[in-house]
């Protein structure tokens, strides 16, 4: 017996999901961060964020098609983390590192928080 492992399958799937997002195909939720709006797929959000997992597994909230985040959340930080969810690439601009880390804490993305901590310590 044999098995063929397509080593780039995960990244090919993620790239297609990001193409669907950019064309607003089958997106099913709008995330409101202060006055900015972000369209996304609930499944991708809950796969990447503990907060969204809690929201969309709650039978009273899973059918919402718009979610407002806490006003303390920085829209730029959220945009960078949303891009990370769909690309695996985290853009770390010096001026935004704290906003990104605080947003990752809020979204319960612990591994990203740990990586940001290590990045800050190494750049100190």
């Amino acid at each position: 017996d044999s098995c063929i492992q397509f080593t780039r399958h995960a990244s090919d799937v993620l790239l297609n999901l990001n193409r669907l997002r950019s064309r607003d195909i089958l997106t099913d939720v709008t995330i409101l961060v202060n006055r900015q709006q972000f369209r996304a797929h609930k499944t991708v959000l809950m796969a990447c964020s503990g907060l969204f997992y809690s929201i969309f597994t709650d039978s009273h909230k899973c059918n919402l098609n718009a979610i407002s985040l806490d006003p303390k959340v920085d829209p730029e930080g959220f945009a960078i983390l949303l891009e990370f969810m769909y690309t695996s690439r985290l853009a770390l601009k010096e001026s935004l590192i704290m906003a990104i880390m605080n947003t990752a804490i809020y979204l319960q993305m612990d591994h990203v928080v740990d990586t940001c901590h290590r990045f800050i310590k190494s750049s100190d």
Partner: peptide, 21 residues
């Protein structure tokens, strides 16, 4: 897949969704 002979395919695995139709 214990005990199965695994062949690694490095090429693309699925179609690429275009940026726009």
């Amino acid at each position: 897949y214990e005990g199965v002979n695994t062949i690694k395919e490095m090429g693309r695995s699925i179609h690429e969704i275009p940026r726009k139709e």
